[in-house]
């Protein structure tokens, strides 16, 4: 994880989370989140699945690194771990992935993970896993592309101090 993580960030990510949760109804008793320790405990337990999810969205594509190499999953979990509603959405959706995979999502191969994400993205908008997919995609892309390394050789210098005179004819 880089020493100076970007600040995509908490405010923006929370905004995305609020939008994802708006109007969403999770089935009663759908998850067991509340019995299980602190947010940090939850994040540690959930990390393998979120690592796999983020690297499916954003795999290593040399010279661009994978999402995990840029610390993206940790930033996603840091947002979710303090929010009980988000934790429930994550748990419910990760259970959906495990059930669909017929085992642990983080233990199936990359092609299977890709197919599972396709199935998740095709669910009706009202389905919690569909909301989870879009929230994860938005947050992961936001955190990932905040790193200039994500663009590999296509990286741009920041807008200042040089400006972008190449935009003029």
């Amino acid at each position: 994880m880089p020493s100076n993580p970007p600040r995509f960030t908490r405010r923006q990510a929370l905004g995305l989370a609020a939008a994802a949760l708006a109007g969403l109804v999770l089935p009663a008793g759908a998850t067991e989140t509340e019995r299980e320790g602190t947010g940090q405990d939850w994040a540690a337990r959930t990390a393998p699945a979120i690592d796999a999810f983020c690297d499916t969205l954003l795999p290593a594509d040399p010279p661009a690194p994978a999402a995990t190499a840029l610390g993206v999953p940790a930033q996603v979990l840091a947002i979710a771990q303090d929010n009980p509603n988000l934790r429930r959405l994550f748990d419910f959706s990760l259970q959906w992935l495990d059930q669909s995979a017929g085992g642990r999502f983080d233990e199936v191969d990359a092609a299977t993970r890709h197919g599972l994400l396709e199935a998740m993205a095709a669910l009706p908008w009202e389905a919690p896993p569909r909301r989870f997919f879009h929230l994860m995609r938005d947050m992961a892309m936001g955190f990932y592309y905040a790193h200039p390394e994500a663009l590999g050789e296509a990286r741009l210098p920041p807008p200042q101090p040089g400006g972008y005179f190449e935009s003029l004819p």
Binding site: P59, M141, Y145
Partner: peptide
């Protein structure tokens, strides 16, 4: 690139990353 990735270029995975770089 955040805007392109989140709003303009659909999909994910390596194809998506290449498409974002190309669209910038």
């Amino acid at each position: 690139p955040i805007a392109y990735a989140r709003r303009a270029v659909p999909g994910w995975g390596k194809g998506h990353q290449a498409a974002v770089r190309k669209a910038l």
